Computed example of a mutant assay.
Amino acid sequence: MRVEMEEYKGYVLQIEDDAKLTTRVVRNVLNSITRLLQESEKKSPRNLMKLLEDSKGFIGVVEFDDERVLPLIPGEFQNSWSLVVVTLTAIVIALPSISNDCVKDLLFSISEGIYFVRHVEENLNPCEDLVKSRKASRRVGAEVDVYRTWLQIDLRKKARKGKRSKEILQWLGDEAAEHVKQYKNSNASLNHSFHKFIAAICMYRTSQTLLLHYNAQPSWPTDMDVFERVRSLIADIFLACFTNLSRVIKMKCHHDEIEKRQDSVRTAAQILGKSKAILNILQARQLPDIDMDSMAYIDKWRALSKNEILSEIDIERDGNRVDRITYPVIPHF
């Protein structure tokens, strides 16, 4: 215990830089964090783990948006992790002939996964466009979760009328395109409907990508096959996003403001406790050749080729390249 306390004294919250804490205080602090970690581990996201364990890798992060889908407007649009997941969630709810139990299980998994996604985005995606995308995902996500609607459109409407998944995907794409058209004609780039515009672009591209994929098949798949593909995309996107959790945890353990450091480190301990099983899955995965900063952005992942996602990389590090996920050493406040 004495060796452990000496190791972590440098991380302990100090009132002044030169302040020295007694062995008793350090022991109490370490015990407090240990209890918090243990309590958080008991809250491991069980539904999310079932989803992630079915994932074979990260391929979904390059397959949810096909570059062959023509843009509705010129210029680039930045995706956020959460908005893509919320969009895929809306599609899941809209699909016909899927049992309520299957849908509920997936929605529970997504809810648990979004908790970690939020931490990644809030700490590693500070640019203005992604902040706007994140706000859009919160607004739309709340609507999808509570009312089962997307931009005030009843997601179960077509399913109740006996429509097939192909017709539903086309319908969602058409509705999204109409929202984009209305926004462009309003000439109000900063009005309250901007979040709808962002969400509509994401829905259009995602639904059209699924249509493009299945239209290339010899025959249209069953509704359950479509559900399983969307489920797989969500799992892979979650896993790619979660490769940033170690970095988030470390950042929270080194907060610059002393007044906020204690709460920040406690949050880090909670994230670590809840995500320990997730990190175990990631430790067995090898990553594509992508630098640490780019890992934080879904569009950086999407820019990779499928071969880069599928190919194994050397275990030795090459510059900033990351090969395996490692547990962070958690400093104590």
Results as ranks from 00 to 15, higher is better:
residue 279 L to Y: 07
residue 237 I to A: 03
residue 165 S to W: 13
residue 204 Y to G: 01
residue 29 V to D: 03
residue 147 Y to G: 09
residue 220 W to P: 01
residue 275 S to T: 04
residue 137 S to A: 15
residue 55 S to Y: 03
residue 261 R to D: 04
residue 189 S to R: 08
residue 273 G to K: 02
residue 201 I to R: 10
residue 231 R to D: 08
residue 280 N to H: 11
residue 270 Q to Y: 12
residue 57 G to R: 01
residue 62 V to M: 00
residue 278 I to T: 00
residue 109 S to H: 01
residue 181 K to G: 08
residue 223 D to W: 02
residue 323 D to S: 14
residue 97 S to I: 05
residue 289 D to H: 09
residue 308 E to S: 13
residue 94 A to G: 07
residue 120 V to L: 07
residue 241 C to N: 11
residue 294 S to A: 14
residue 30 L to D: 09
residue 255 H to V: 06
residue 238 F to H: 03
residue 180 V to E: 05
residue 285 R to H: 14
residue 196 K to C: 09
residue 297 Y to P: 01
residue 206 T to M: 03
residue 120 V to W: 06
residue 124 L to V: 00
residue 270 Q to D: 12
residue 219 S to L: 09
residue 4 E to F: 14
residue 52 L to Y: 02
residue 60 G to V: 07
residue 163 K to A: 15
residue 99 S to E: 13
residue 174 D to S: 15
residue 157 K to I: 12
residue 101 D to H: 11
residue 61 V to Q: 06
residue 91 I to S: 05
residue 56 K to H: 09
residue 167 E to W: 12
residue 332 H to I: 12
residue 260 K to G: 06
residue 82 S to K: 10
residue 247 R to D: 03
residue 15 I to L: 14
residue 63 E to W: 05
residue 254 H to D: 12
residue 38 Q to R: 11
residue 157 K to R: 15
residue 218 P to H: 10
residue 27 R to L: 14
residue 198 I to T: 05
residue 322 V to P: 01
residue 133 S to L: 10
residue 100 N to K: 12
residue 250 K to Q: 10
residue 190 L to W: 08
residue 157 K to W: 14
residue 87 T to E: 05
residue 113 G to C: 08
residue 108 F to S: 11
residue 89 T to S: 15
residue 8 Y to M: 10
residue 156 R to M: 14
residue 297 Y to E: 01
residue 242 F to M: 04
residue 182 Q to L: 14
residue 260 K to F: 15
residue 57 G to K: 00
residue 79 N to K: 07
residue 323 D to N: 12
residue 304 L to F: 09
residue 296 A to Q: 04
residue 46 R to W: 09
residue 230 V to G: 07
residue 194 F to S: 11
residue 116 F to M: 10
residue 52 L to V: 00
residue 181 K to Q: 11
residue 140 V to I: 15
residue 138 R to V: 14
residue 33 I to E: 13
residue 317 R to Q: 12
residue 177 A to K: 09
residue 104 K to G: 06
residue 78 Q to D: 13
residue 240 A to C: 04
residue 222 T to R: 11
residue 144 V to W: 03
residue 84 V to I: 06
residue 179 H to T: 13
residue 333 F to Y: 14
residue 287 L to D: 00
